[in-house]
Design a protein around this nucleic acid. Structure first.
Lengths: 343, 343
DNA sequence: TTGAAAGCGCTAACAC
DNA sequence: GTGTTAGCGCTTTCAA
């Protein structure tokens, strides 16, 4: 691979000039500019990103921490993040923690600040403490899907009103006339879905519905399947199931199928997120859509701001911890929910 | 972030010694070794990956080119690649080409050789010519899912016998008694699925079945859905549909559902790959499994070898272009295929 | 066993 | 406008 100096020699100028041409810095004569450009593609020169990073004191990538890329939500989100990141010339390194805090920390330790100049975190089972460490070492961190706009995490974040999401799901079911509704709450361990469930319960309570069955489940189709069967076994009179995420909701539909229950005839199902699969399931899933692309955009631009200001003189400005709030989740009614019929 | 020299100063030695300790190179006295190690974690030192890359003349990442991370096969594959890559200390940068050769080339130009020391390519709609260019510039490239073990692409690759996969699918359907079988062939543009279809046709031919309907489709659920409807409309007597990939197969099942056809009672459906969703659909999809994890492992280790030897003195050894062949695809019978019943 | 010195490819002051 | 000079943080001969 040709280097800057080789290009310079070829063009009969110094490396500095080539650098200036390539990044439109400093004044360069039109003639030399041409000569340099010719040399560049005569030699097929491409800048060495690692060298540039070292010289600039910054890195060309952003790290995206995800708990499991096998969960289809994350690829969707990652795609949106990548698109946003490319607009500022950043590459994205996707770091799979596999729900393991140790792996997560290892990634942070190795990448943050040396390969990546910023870190985006989804529900990656990372300890907030670890994130604070990276941040205190100078690498900005943004939490991407904070669930409670009203309860900041102490780190920069993009929040989504997930309580509202749960509430909308609950209201929808109530309006259809459901009263015996089961709930599947995901991600028990980290407790991230608690807020969604709260919103749901609030809706029921407001409608005077007091009792409802709950089951925790892994955030997978299978988890939802198992939970739904348990729910339906405990109370065969259930006419609807609400899940705090789409994957378990999809699992609930499978459970219904296996039990010979028609959806939505015998059982309505509602999820949260609106992943691609929700549109593609049969019947298509009614869900509360989260503005994924918007969140990705907000997260990247917030991270970018933090990065820029971290290089600025006011790096120790230590103002308030910023938070962006996405637009509100929205109910998307599809075919999996309907009026209850007695069985 | 503390640097090597700061650690050195702190430990009362020179940078060279610290480096030696950290990488177990050269002889270092046990006493100093201890002192260095203490200094390292007293200061929370972490090596600067970009600096190291520059000094070593190699990069810490591998690039994985994929056409669309939204297609659930790729995250699964990426996960396996990432796991394999971590064993050699590599990070993985996932490069989404979005089926666009220009984007693909842009990624290659920027990353290959400067951020990544090797490139893994799945069906990313990249021109082979572009790949040859990167390779000729010194960055090893491995094609990950070559479809024809008997017809090498001229680049290092991991091949899977996809002709056999198609054949197995065809045979399975024939053995169940199907004779009127429709086929959905994906990725028309790149023609990558032609081999799979050939295998399928060979199976039919061997059984004396001459005619069969075909439809091309995008490699998505929706693509399969549309194609299946067209197929079924053209020939309502079809008792089975074979798709060259799981996603379109899933789409075919949806089409059946919408047309009021029971799967597998009225229509059997078979795919190829065995992605996670194949197990999770209702009914679960019969498919020919491709050894994804194995392929990822083979690809990464082949790439690693190429990288090592590219740094060796025999870099211009120019022996034969290596190819690895994965173990054979295997039929996985699930619930979407069964004996045809007349309608 | 440890230190000194050069250099990886690039950028950024500053001088000419 | 263009060249000179350091130097980013690390590795790696080669001396001591």
């Amino acid at each position: 691979m040709p280097t800057l100096s080789e290009v310079a020699r070829h063009a009969g100028v110094t490396p500095a000039t080539v650098s200036n041409v390539l990044r439109n810095r400093g004044r360069v004569g039109e003639a030399t500019r041409q000569r340099v450009l010719e040399a560049v593609d005569a030699l097929g020169y491409r800048p060495h990103l690692a060298a540039r990073a070292l010289a600039e004191g910054r890195a060309p990538t952003l790290a995206l921490m995800v708990s499991s890329i096998a969960n289809p939500f994350y690829p969707e989100f990652a795609l949106a993040v990548e698109r946003a990141a490319r607009t500022s010339g950043h590459f994205v390194i996707i770091c799979n923690t596999n729900e393991d805090p140790v792996t997560g920390r290892a990634y942070l330790d190795q990448i943050a600040g040396t390969l990546s100049e910023g870190v985006l975190v989804t529900n990656a089972n990372l300890e907030l403490a670890d994130l604070h460490v990276t941040e205190s070492r100078g690498t900005p961190v943004v939490l991407c899907m904070w669930e409670r706009p009203d309860d900041p995490p102490g780190l920069p974040c993009v929040a989504v009103d997930f309580r509202l999401a749960g509430e909308l799901a609950g209201k929808h079911l109530l309006e259809l006339g459901h009263r015996r509704i089961g709930a599947i709450v995901g991600s028990k361990a980290s407790g991230v879905h608690a807020t969604r469930y709260e919103g749901f319960v609030d809706a029921l309570r407001a409608a005077g519905v007091r009792r409802n069955r709950v089951r925790h489940a892994a955030d997978t189709i299978h988890g939802g399947y198992t939970a739904a069967r348990a729910l339906l076994e405990a109370d065969p009179q259930l006419t609807a199931i609400f899940a705090t995420n789409d994957l378990p909701a999809l699992g609930a539909m499978h459970a219904a199928a296996d039990l010979g229950l028609a959806v939505p005839g015998d059982l309505s199902v509602v999820g949260i997120t609106d992943i691609q699969l929700a549109r593609e399931s049969r019947p298509a899933l009614t869900t509360v859509a989260v503005p994924t692309v918007e969140v990705a955009g907000l997260a990247v631009s917030l991270l970018r701001e933090l990065i820029e200001s971290s290089y600025g003189q006011n790096a120790r400005g230590k103002t308030k911890v910023p938070m962006r709030v996405s637009s509100a989740p929205q109910l998307v009614v599809r075919a999996s929910s309907g009026t209850p019929r007695s069985r």
